[in-house]
Write a protein that binds this DNA or RNA. Structure first.
Lengths: 202, 202
DNA sequence: GTCTATACCATGATAGAC
DNA sequence: GTCTATCATGGTATAGAC
């Protein structure tokens, strides 16, 4: 029963830390910041996590918890490979649009210079999902490199959201084209038939 | 002539600062770090730049100097739109592969929470190149959104390099598929005909 | 399990000698 | 134009009372 209370406080800390790390990254957040946001003193945090590094790692994994499963279900699910891929793209675009913290944390992770953290997150967080996507790619293009195809697919979707903050200041930016459904449709068209048939964006 | 000496020291500082910022980002680098690398004291840096923010901004712009021009030349150059696009993709992949600092700085910029910096860099650094790419996209797909198409094209290429550090720990990673020429060929195939004709990766 | 208090160090930035 | 010296602030982390 004490165990539950401890676990709850742990969750509370992580829940508050995630948006902070998402916004300004590991180096940009201080233990004081997190403590203040949670409503405790910095010393209290050290009762739940040995140091800032471990807290960050736990926060990232917390942010990814439950996120990967649904995507994997879609990719491993029923229907033709194209149907599954399209469903994945639509949902992925929606999640990226709605959950900025999740997306930004992914970006911070990619820039992490710490090999240990990188490896751990690759295995714990990305591994399963990436494999499911590779499987679908393999069904669609038996002769291609599933690794290459999976990366291209994800990059094609995610880059629209990674660059959104900058693109607001670039020419041709239009609010209505930032709808995740529009982006998903565009991406599917491109994957199906290439550029020239990606046609008019709705 | 004193002007020249000053300018040289400025360049020297920026040249040394770029790799530092590229590796650990704005928050990860201290003025002491930069000073040590340059071989002066921190106080000396403040003779050339008013504060850390301005030094960072100058470093980023320094890293992008000369980079944008050649890409723009290719895109604005002669030949069919497809030829120009392919040449751009090939060169872009090569540069991303060779110049890690350049690529990582782009990634840090995308995560910047500072609206001012973001806007300035968008205009000074990305604006021209992005427009040139949009023009080519417009020639290829007169009915499509050039903004969407340009973002997709860049994302399709760049994501292979952004994720490289993580992908090393993911299944299906193969050294020989990390060759920028292989990636460029893969991307061109995808843009030309979509997934199913992206065929076997060389 | 959280607090107060604090040790100890790194940070950005400046003043003033040379 | 660079140095030495220094300041105020804020960083991680710990000790020990409650």
């Amino acid at each position: 029963m004490t165990r539950q209370v401890v676990a709850i406080m742990r969750e509370e800390i992580l829940g508050r830390a995630v948006p902070l790390f998402a916004k300004v990254g590991f180096e940009g957040v201080s233990m004081r910041d997190i403590a203040t946001t949670v409503g405790v003193t910095p010393a209290a945090l050290y009762h739940h996590f040995p140091d800032k590094d471990q807290l960050y790692l736990a926060a990232v994994e917390h942010a990814f918890e439950g996120k990967v499963g649904p995507f994997k279900s879609i990719l491993d699910g029923t229907g033709s490979p194209w149907e599954r891929l399209e469903a994945f793209i639509a949902k992925f675009a929606r999640v990226l649009d709605e959950e900025n913290d999740f997306r930004r944390l992914m970006q911070w992770v990619m820039l992490d210079s710490n090999e240990e953290r990188l490896q751990r997150l690759a295995h714990c967080v990305f591994g399963n999902l990436f494999n499911a996507l590779r499987n679908v790619a393999g069904e669609l293009v038996p002769t291609g490199s599933t690794h290459l195809l999976a990366v291209s697919t994800v990059g094609l979707i995610i880059y629209h959201f990674e660059t959104k903050a900058v693109r607001r200041f670039l020419p041709g930016y239009e609010q209505r084209r930032e709808d995740p459904a529009v982006i998903a449709k565009h991406v599917v068209g491109l994957l199906r038939n290439g550029l020239e048939s990606s046609g008019p964006a709705t």
